[in-house]
Design a protein around this nucleic acid. Structure first.
Length: 235
DNA sequence: GCGACAG
DNA sequence: ATCTTGTCGC
């Protein structure tokens, strides 16, 4: 289906439909050996989106491979509907991978969303892939204040529902918003992101995907599937 | 009506 | 998200 010319009511209807397919206990997402990171980049004013999906070993975070692809999107950025803009391009990169990671981290929300259908949940339901949402800013949910030290976390709730965590990935630096997209629990999602965090605010999977997709957009890397010869850990 | 509002 | 200059701190 083409997301490019959906009306907002139609997009909302799709989210209401997909939310019923959410699962948080997929058996294949409990033991993790590889983790993926996905991100999008584009030039301001252009409808061409650049997508990157990287795969790294878990938990050592060495880069193993990555897929680069472009996509076209005329669907605008509207808070609550990010998936309709970015998922198509991500699926193009996804289709280039010969093997999928055990879990994939997306730049955005999972179930920390008014209809529990952030981009990580949307992508997960569509592909059956276990996903985690790691966002740099809040979209939905309430939480208490967070301690200043690295590693501190506090639940994010929707009334009495526990839907995610606020996690301080670096001392005295703005925390990130973690929630399951599909296939694993709220607590497991937090644990996986904790294990994937190095010396930077952004966890390695999405941090590397962000760096690589920008090199792709600026012509330093070519589209297609690439394997890293000598995986080097940066921490 | 007002404030909030992923990337 | 992208663009862009300057500033603060390890």
């Amino acid at each position: 289906m083409d997301y490019n010319k959906l009306t907002l009511p139609e997009a909302t209807e799709i989210q209401e439909d997909l939310r019923h397919k959410l699962r948080f206990d997929r058996p294949d997402a409990q033991v993790i050996y590889t983790i993926g990171g996905a991100d999008i980049s584009y030039n301001k004013g252009s409808e061409i989106l650049y997508a990157a999906i990287v795969i790294l070993n878990y938990p050592d975070m060495t880069l193993r491979s990555y897929a680069l692809a472009t996509g076209h999107s005329s669907f605008p950025y509207i808070p609550g509907y990010l998936a309709f803009r970015e998922v198509p391009a991500l699926l193009n990169a996804w289709s280039l991978l010969p093997v999928r990671p055990d879990v994939l981290v997306l730049d955005g929300q999972g179930i920390l969303h008014p209809r529990q259908m952030g981009i990580a949940s949307h992508f997960g339901v569509l592909t059956g892939q276990a996903t985690i949402g790691c966002a740099k800013n809040s979209l939905y949910g309430r939480h208490a204040d967070l301690a200043r030290f690295k590693g501190s976390s506090t639940p994010i709730v929707d009334g009495v529902k526990h839907i995610g965590h606020l996690l301080r990935t670096k001392e005295a630096v703005k925390p990130v918003f973690i929630s399951p997209g599909y296939g694993l629990s709220v607590n497991k999602s937090l644990e996986v992101i904790r294990q994937s965090t190095g010396r930077y605010r952004i966890p390695e999977p999405t941090r590397l995907a962000h760096n690589i997709v920008n090199d792709f957009r600026t012509g330093k890397l070519n589209p297609g599937y690439h394997e890293v010869e000598q995986p080097l850990s940066l921490f």
